[in-house]
Simulated assay, not measured.
Amino acid sequence: MNNDAKTNMVTESVSNHDNLDKMSVKEILRGINEEDKTVPFAIEQSIPQIEVLIPEIVKRMKAGGRLFYIGAGTSGRLGIVDASECPPTYGVPFDMVIGIIAGGDGAIRKAVEFAEDDPEQAWKDLAEYNISELDTLIGIAASGRTPYVIGGLNKAREAGILTASISCNPGSELSVAAQYPIEVVVGPEFVTGSTRMKAGTAQKLVLNMISTSVMIQLGKVRGNKMVDMQMSNYKLVNRGITMIMNELGISREEAEVLLENHGSVRGAIDSYRSGKGQS
């Protein structure tokens, strides 16, 4: 690790709040909320870093590329959550956005000791997916110093793969490894060093921004509607019916038939408008 990375560990800095164990529940909740309010403003400063990355991801995905997230602990879990939500929300294949966590799937629920300390393992994990130059790799690490993530980005960059990072310390080793570093400096945590809090929130919000922007650019949203969402439960089926009703100005019964016949909001709307809605 370079000297700058050692001296800019904002995520490890002492909390703005002390004597937490002597606070009332109300004081604890207000203190956490006070800190959480600062996160969107920190992200606002990073929008230019996110903005330049999106077109590069979209360009590759239009050519058949995939989006990978790698991380350890909370960061890895957040990447997996974002990846797992893309298929039901946007109707994309399950292997179009992929989240990988240090220690394997078992680490999603239970921490795997020292899994994040191996700088070679991430590339081995990625190799199982035959990652290629069409793909994009985003490394997630609040500290910006996780060997698993840094090692994966370095190897990917050597292989000609587009690399980006999300971290919460300025000038970290992870940022140096990435072609498109995103740094959201949220400051000290309410509980000193507990980066599952503000840093985790920041990472989640940035991941939301990236995947949502990419999917919109790929045409997976029409107007403001998830027209390709999977009808995997009654709530989503009802949402789909309502979307069709509102878009076409038809009855619920007609919308139900269209959705049943065509299997998606997009298919139902397009078929109806092309004069084939009753087929």
Rank of each mutant, 00 (worst) to 15 (best):
T89K: 04
Y148D: 01
L20P: 00
D105N: 14
S24V: 10
Q121T: 15
S271V: 05
A141T: 02
A42G: 07
Y234Q: 14
Q179F: 02
I138F: 02
Q278M: 15
G219E: 11
V112G: 01
N154P: 00
E253K: 09
L205T: 13
M1W: 05
K276C: 11
M9T: 15
P181K: 07
S165L: 09
I244S: 05
I131V: 15
V10Q: 03
L207T: 10
G187N: 11
L134M: 13
L78W: 03
E254R: 08
N8Q: 14
L126H: 05
Q217M: 13
S167Y: 04
A127S: 14
A115F: 06
V14D: 11
L207E: 05
V214I: 08
K155T: 02
V185M: 04
G139H: 00
I150Y: 01
N224T: 15
S213V: 06
V184A: 01
M23V: 05
L207Q: 11
R145I: 11
A42S: 14
P93K: 09
R252E: 12
A141M: 03
S279D: 15
N169A: 10
A107L: 08
A83P: 00
S271C: 11
K204H: 06
G249E: 09
I54A: 08
G76V: 05
L162C: 08
K204V: 13
L205S: 06
V25M: 05
P93Q: 07
T242C: 11
L67P: 01
I138R: 00
S264G: 07
